[in-house]
Design a protein around this nucleic acid. Structure first.
Length: 483
DNA sequence: TGAAATGTTGGGGCG
DNA sequence: ACGCCCCAACATTTC
């Protein structure tokens, strides 16, 4: 008779490689009960968005197959997580639950509930890292407080950094002798049906660990070499596009770090590009640290003076922004890329976010909510920290006077207009020199390009100069910071 | 990981 | 030859 099994509870760590909790569970030498629990109410206000549900369905499918290849089985359960884990532990007579820790307020609260729930039982809770390279408790200022500014965080992060070797994926995952009930993935209705808007996502992404690892490999062998320059160019394939894989834990951030270090040695890359990429990974860690220490970040401006900010309220403007009908080509291209692929190039994210908060003066949480629902890489820490950063109300935020000029940004980062042409095809025939400001194009140029402003493409919903001055005035008049 | 306004400089056209 | 103006090009400051 074999020992009691242990449970491995999968969360946003949908991988088999470099998975400390899974590795430790395998080491226990007992059969493994592998489970994912869909708990729709767990995250409160931050239920999974539509794009995330699509990704999750595909990622779970991939994980289940990877597990089956190793002789195991992924169980699917639905309901309140603590109840489900207790029931599963009773059903299987499990002696322990292995899991990867989370950092969102709801995840932290859940873990503490689990501790009380299992305190008086024979079931041991085994909690591991794996979602971050360094734990938020590790990094403190000299005063013992969490960092609020990125540069010192980066310095501390890299100063005595030791990235452990990759943990290999278990060869075999031995299931318990007796079958355990599982729900069917298709019963969860994670995929959109009416309408099915997911074809663009399916054309763009390969969810799952294999897709993640091959993406990292491709990136490290290619775009990483020129990352410092090309990451800012939405008209090129210069970014890693690893964000959704990281969000679902299909690859560990440590694996990304190691791949960058390895490529640098192997290919003798310039330090600049590799460091720039590492800095992006560390921005992610910084956001997690902020969320962990400042759990109100997704809902509340970190700078207190913003509680008095006179945000506008315009359903029409918000709708135009969401649908990519602002009349500013680079903004509209970004929003349409988002709806179509579940992703938006980072440079363009900054532009559309600046446009929402500064040109339109709409509340940053509106943008945050829209991104949450539509991004396949929706991640509470990254999303909320970044929106606060752009709006100027966050930790180490962009200064209030930094207002992106959507015309100049377009000309600078999409000089030939390839990005705009792809996502706003009704403008594609305009010459590049006019593409980023069609309202300023000559009548004949518009005619030749078959563009009828106000008909085939909208007029700008605000004037850049006027909006810029309006925003400066408001931001300038905010009371001085008190936090 | 801005943009715009303002200031400075230096070359060239021109009277 | 000289001073003057114009205006890129670049630098600085201000928002």
């Amino acid at each position: 008779m074999s020992a009691n099994p242990v449970i491995v509870w999968f969360r946003n760590d949908l991988r088999l490689h470099d998975h400390p909790a899974l590795t430790a569970a395998v080491k226990s030498g007992t059969p493994l009960v592998l489970v994912y629990i869909l708990d729709d109410d767990a995250a409160g206000h931050w239920k999974l968005g539509g794009a995330s549900r699509w990704w999750l369905a595909n990622s779970l499918d991939a994980l289940a197959k990877d597990i089956e290849h190793r002789g195991g089985r992924l169980l699917l359960r639905r309901g309140e997580t603590s109840n489900q884990l207790q029931r599963l532990a009773e059903e299987t007579h499990a002696s322990a639950i292995y899991f990867t820790r989370g950092y969102e307020p709801s995840a932290v609260a859940l873990e503490s509930r689990l501790h009380s729930a299992f305190a008086k039982t024979q079931v041991a809770l085994k909690r591991y890292g794996g979602r971050l390279i360094r734990e938020p408790e590790e990094l403190r200022t000299a005063a013992g407080k969490p960092f609020q500014v990125y540069s010192p965080f980066w310095r501390a992060f890299t100063s005595d950094l030791l990235v452990a070797k990759e943990l290999s994926a278990p060869r075999r995952l031995v299931p318990p002798a007796e079958a355990v009930a599982s729900e069917k993935l298709t019963d969860w209705n994670l995929l959109p049906s009416k309408p099915d808007w997911s074809s663009g996502l399916a054309d763009t992404w390969v969810p799952g660990e294999e897709g993640a690892r091959s993406r990292l490999k491709t990136f490290a062998a290619g775009a990483l070499a020129t990352y410092a320059q090309s990451r800012d160019r939405p008209d090129q394939c210069g970014t890693s596009r690893l964000s959704p894989h990281l969000a679902f834990g299909e690859i560990s951030p440590a694996a990304c770090w190691r791949a960058a270090v390895h490529a640098q040695h192997e290919k003798e890359l310039g330090e600049k590009s590799v460091e720039t990429f590492m800095r992006e990974l560390v921005w992610r860690e910084f956001s997690y640290s902020l969320l962990f220490h400042l759990p109100e970040m997704p809902e509340k401006a970190l700078r207190t003076e913003f509680s008095a900010f006179p945000w506008r309220n315009s359903a029409a403007d918000l709708k135009a922004w969401r649908r990519g009908e602002t009349g500013y080509p680079i903004v509209d291209a970004g929003m349409r890329e988002l709806w179509s692929t579940g992703y938006m190039h980072n440079r363009v994210r900054m532009i559309v976010a600046s446009f929402l908060t500064k040109h339109l003066l709409l509340h940053w949480t509106e943008g945050e909510a829209c991104f949450w629902d539509t991004l396949v890489d929706a991640d509470l820490a990254n999303n909320s920290a970044s929106w606060q950063w752009v709006a100027g109300c966050g930790a180490d935020a962009a200064p209030y006077f930094r207002i992106f000029n959507p015309i100049l940004q377009g000309q600078k980062f999409d000089p030939e207009g390839k990005y705009v042409s792809k996502w706003v095809p009704e403008l594609a025939r305009l010459p590049a020199s006019e593409l980023h400001s069609p309202w300023a194009a000559s009548v004949s140029a518009l005619q030749r390009a078959d563009v009828k402003l106000g008909k085939t493409y909208p007029e700008p919903i605000v004037d850049h100069q006027i909006a810029r001055e309006r925003a400066l005035k408001i931001y300038q008049n905010l009371p001085r910071s008190t936090s």
